[in-house]
Design a protein around this nucleic acid. Structure first.
Lengths: 197, 197, 197, 197
DNA sequence: AATGAATGAGAGTTCATTCAT
DNA sequence: CATGAATGAACTCTCATTCAT
């Protein structure tokens, strides 16, 4: 009978669940989130949830996987650019723009809260590596072009740039009065100061 | 009669529990930590635990309260100094030194993971305020002395300095290769660059 | 699709749990009854129990609610009768018949044992009121008809009649040799003596 | 050293604990009463409590033992009387007077709530027997004197008289508006009606 | 495919009781 | 004798997950 598998419909529903989970994780943290709450938010039954994800943790991992894909997509967008420093600063700026999704800070904290679980840690590592892979080549290029300092190697510089965006995310998460729009300029300026030879 | 309450002994045991809790929270996150695990770590029975703390969350709050006291104690240490910029950088540096306790990053993430709980959020706010109260006056003094930039007001500058130390803590937490000792110098240098007029 | 909710099945199972709880409460008292024991008696898992009742106390309240419904149902059975005294004595007699369920005395004691809990007290009040509402009008009618004494007002007479049935229940509960069948006649006779003008 | 055992002091303290326990049992039921609450009420430490009573249940049993002693003491007061019916009614009346202690109803319910425990049941039986032993001979005498009905044997009549006082106690316990003073007369009158040949 | 009723492992917490001081 | 800190057994309840329909 019935068209049992409509891949598009399946994928769409999967995304609905992922989005719902992101929302609830951000609000209540990982353990504070019950599968029931995700189902309510997604408008599905609990049985359906487990049709799409074998485990609550798997939804979380799926969300993280999304982020990795994102980083890779963005890599292509920069291909062909010749102003290495400009790209580096653009990446920094785009890090600030992630905060645009108001769920992000809460979600980041939620993930941090269970980072001690090996599979989560691993996925996060992959995430981090994907981001580094995006940034690192441009830092190296900028160094070779003499646009930025060379007293620190490219790897450390990359770490520090992500330290800035991570800190930015954290501030935005915890400080109500931290205006993302206004502070983004300070972020880019601070990155520039940090990178100056 | 009856040596019923030996306050010193009581306080000591309380500290043992707090310390044990800090260790386990850092390792397994807040929800991943069972009271049983804390008791095992502290070498006490479960009943004893609840003799000292009415709730698992109360141990966490007690740990955070410690941090607040710390900030206030440190304030006194700087009293009398006249080199405002020096003090500011010292505070930044001491932020990096907090990472000396290898449990700190994990603990910070654990707390982040349940920051959505109102009482935890409140305590953290208090913590943040205590830290700001420590830093802010010295930033203002440094500005008046013309030692640092004045295009951002003292409040924003303070936020940014903590953004740096928080990001530093986060990096140390997630990146194995991030050498605290070596990077502390970069931190202070970066703060100096950020503060330059 | 999916026969998700079969209300009849749900209600049936609810009744099974209620019945099991009544049995165990009667045997061991309220606090002496563990939810595990109720589950065992009902042949269900512990999770199922809490699927039907949010709290152990809620089962108890559900049992009491049953009693209230009972009283209301019975009210209809008497509608249309014209022999007020006869109805009053029938109600007294039916009170004695409640003891037919051998669990009743134990259950009554169990409820008494936690009557200090506000919600239980409230439900019991409702129960009492439902019973009074059943009896009172017939007492008034009997008084107007000159069938019974009028030196006490109808409310007090009603209280006294329930005093008799309650006492009867208590005796049946505590005295092994108290033969319900034989004593019921004494009960009705005593009520008659009490009511005589 | 010290006068370790001062029997009078010991007995006094025992009574304080018993009284405190009676108060708290009446207010919160047996299981609702923590030993800590009894200690607070008695103004003693928890260790002291267990110096006087090996078990929480033992305090309860001690209270019940008191009642038994009471019944025996009263027996002597009636010795020498010749108006059997008068004594019977006096005993009934004194049953109503027990309610004078406002804690009594609550305590009775508390005891009922754990009557399923063998030792409590046994003590209660003893209590009941003591009361019967007080009443029964006078009922027999009254029957022989032709003062009261003889269609029921003395044992059943005794049961019914206690049924009245128990019911009275129960009403007083559950019905706010039940005025003990006013209703006591009704009680005696009802007993008289019940006993009438 | 979709559902939600059923499940039981496991967690936090309470409290009678012990015992060193 | 008096104390209260320490204890752990036992209990209620939560929630991820399974599975019949």
């Amino acid at each position: 009978m019935a068209r049992t598998v409509d891949p598009a419909r399946h994928e769409a529903r999967r995304l609905v669940i992922i989005d719902a989970a992101l929302t609830v994780f951000a609000q209540r943290g990982y353990d504070g989130t019950t599968t029931a709450a995700i189902c309510r938010q997604a408008g599905i039954g609990s049985g359906t949830f487990f049709h799409y994800f074998p485990t609550k943790r798997d939804v979380l991992l799926a969300i993280l996987t999304f982020g990795i894909g994102d980083a890779r997509d963005r890599a292509e967008a920069y291909a062909g650019r010749t102003d290495a420093l400009g790209v580096v600063l653009d990446i920094v700026r785009s890090g600030a723009e992630d905060v645009a999704d108001p769920r992000m800070p809460g979600f980041v904290r939620a993930v941090g809260g269970i980072m001690h679980q090996p599979d989560v840690a691993e996925k996060l590592d992959e995430d981090t590596r994907a981001q580094r892979d995006l940034m690192l080549p441009w830092v190296e290029r900028a160094q070779r072009a003499g646009e930025i300092r060379t007293d620190l190697d490219a790897g450390r510089i990359t770490s520090w740039l992500y330290l800035l965006t991570d800190g930015f995310l954290g501030r935005a998460a915890s400080e109500e009065t931290f205006s993302v729009a206004a502070e983004t300029e300070v972020l880019v300026d601070t990155a520039r100061r940090f990178l100056a030879p």
